[in-house]
Design a protein around this nucleic acid. Sequence first.
DNA 1: CGCTCTCTTGAGCCCGCTCAACGACAGTGG
DNA 2: CCACTGTCGTTGAGCGGGCTCAAGAGAGCG
Lengths: 234, 234
Amino acid sequence: MPVLTATQGQPRVPAGILAMRATATQPQHVEATTIERHPNGIRRTFIKGEELFAEGDPAEFFYKVVSGTVRTCKLLSDGRRQIEAFHLPGDIFGLENGQDHRFTAEAVEDVVVVSFRRNRFTSLLHDDPAFGDQLMSSMICSLERAHDHMVLLGRKTAQEKLATFLLDMANRLSKGDRFDLPMQRTDIADHLGLTIETVSRTLTQLVRDGLIKFGAAGRTIILNNRARLQQLNA
Amino acid sequence: MPVLTATQGQPRVPAGILAMRATATQPQHVEATTIERHPNGIRRTFIKGEELFAEGDPAEFFYKVVSGTVRTCKLLSDGRRQIEAFHLPGDIFGLENGQDHRFTAEAVEDVVVVSFRRNRFTSLLHDDPAFGDQLMSSMICSLERAHDHMVLLGRKTAQEKLATFLLDMANRLSKGDRFDLPMQRTDIADHLGLTIETVSRTLTQLVRDGLIKFGAAGRTIILNNRARLQQLNA
DNA sequence: CGCTCTCTTGAGCCCGCTCAACGACAGTGG
DNA sequence: CCACTGTCGTTGAGCGGGCTCAAGAGAGCG
């Protein structure tokens, strides 16, 4: 199941941090080969459901996704969960300021990543300026995504949340209108600040309204009416 | 009205990006003098309510707050607003990947900032590694803040949101239990994903429960029971 | 004094949550 | 082969937290 094909379709972006981007909401696909084959990177695989690291673990590594999907999340003391992001091939995550990881990272499906020792971070940054630029660019991208997601969480209705989510996943997972969601409903709910029931009901309603269709399994989504979804988006 | 005193109380942190921090939720106070007196920085002032830049403006500068409070926000087409962050003295904001600013920045109260030309960004980064490290550190801090705020927006109740907000503002604005909120209720509401009425009602309830007290004006807050507020926090 | 801006309070409603049941499907073991 | 079990998704009924709409209370200011 090589999900890498999703990456190959992405437009290449110049390495410079100030490079123009097609749309700033694009995932942080920064010159895949440079980092993936970087001499300091270690390739690792995780199976579905496995934990890459937990909140509070010492932050020894940071990661770049090669294939598969990773979720990063935080838990409240009573178990409420917020998934901050789904990381697809090309995305970088796990970079911390403090000594410890401030969120948990788990494999949504089987995953291959490249990991980098954090204590070589500064030297990497200075020895390889292009690498540093890519990291900075990736950070800014993550921040922009986070900001967009805050608008969604704070101000959008359930229908708008799902429209935004589906359009975003479509852009990141495929070039067309058909794609398979790698994650289950619970993950979507915890990402959008909803319950699983509301996610299910809202998706059903979108199908009834003809905006989307389900494939054979409930994981396959076909966008029937991008225009009207986009309308719900902002 | 020198709000700068807020900064002076902050612990100094080493310049290195991997430096240990007291708590990772601390604002990104990076060696104030280094950046504020940086030869490439331009000092500018804005009066209360003034716009530093708008969503969609070319991103010519990025900024560091010297005194006062800045809010950065996004608007939906129908006017719904989400305030992503309040920037206090020492905080850096306005750094973009694309050509344009992706949010609006406005002065919550009279503000002094240092602005940096973005097109000198890369050269700054490479000529002055310490400056680059500080920027990277600041970015990571912003990202951590954003992640915490997503948990708040997606998963916390109104009461928990306000408890978290008040504790955070207390940490950033003062060392004690008494502080003046620089922003009005509407701003708080749009930051926490609530309505102004809910903010007002919830604050009143916190006063009735003895967790906080109002000063003379509604802007002055006194934390009466940090422990119980902290309990609502997670 | 009137005007505006900000904040508070009240009454009622609705969107999304809670609780609960059910169906589809995949293992798994007899 | 079927029964049993666990996981995942859907659907229904009813509730409630936060929203909407509306009015009023203060404070600042010309």
